[in-house]
Amino acid sequence: MGLLFHIGRYFMLLGEVFSKPERRSVYWRRTVEEMDLLGVKSLGIVALLSLFMGAVIAIQTKTNIDSPLIPFYVVGFTVRQSTILEFSPTIISLILAGKVGSTIAAEIGSMRVKEQIDALDIMGVNSAGYLILPKIIATAIINPFLIMISMFLSIFGGWLAGVFTGIISSSNYIAGVQWDFDPYIVTYALIKTVVFAVIIATVSGYHGYYTRGGTREVGISSTKAVVYSDVVILIANYLLTQLLLL
């Protein structure tokens, strides 16, 4: 089936997803559960990746731009800028697309092949809204917190690596982190994070919702959810960067 077919069906599904919920209290309870499942339970991997990535950026910067002409604060500055502008919002979102996106597609896809979505439809429940909307709201709320934690830990990881390997002093690293700081880059990063969160939940939800077949197809849907979420995130990243930074 053509790309246009999928794009059209994706937006039609969004129309269903954002139609009036049957009972707000049930949707809200589900949203809180999803915040725990999709957000809080991703904290470990986000923290681990952020710490090590910040450390690697610090060491790479120091070893590759080691010149007397380069100012002392460049390591801290580079770690901060690359973390806030790209690493935390984009790379962590791509990783979350793998973890969270596959979970969403597998859960909804399994419900589809086990006729549970048909059961919801027959009861008169808006199945698309009931299953996907809480995930969109949950990821849009929780991901910015995850990304802020990632920013902090990545910069902290850079400090740990810099100071404990002796490539930079603590004061020089901190001076670099503080140098020429524009708070707008955090706003830019958080806007991107929210957009990417919505992409992860909706693209993965779409692939899960339209799963046909059996367990093998659920696996295929999960893979497609991750691949297409990543592709859409990369395209959106380019567009948002051009819109918000130029």
Partner: peptide
């Protein structure tokens, strides 16, 4: 409706 697979929510 009762489905062939019961379709209970896991």
């Amino acid at each position: 409706m009762l489905f062939q697979s019961s379709a209970l929510f896991d």
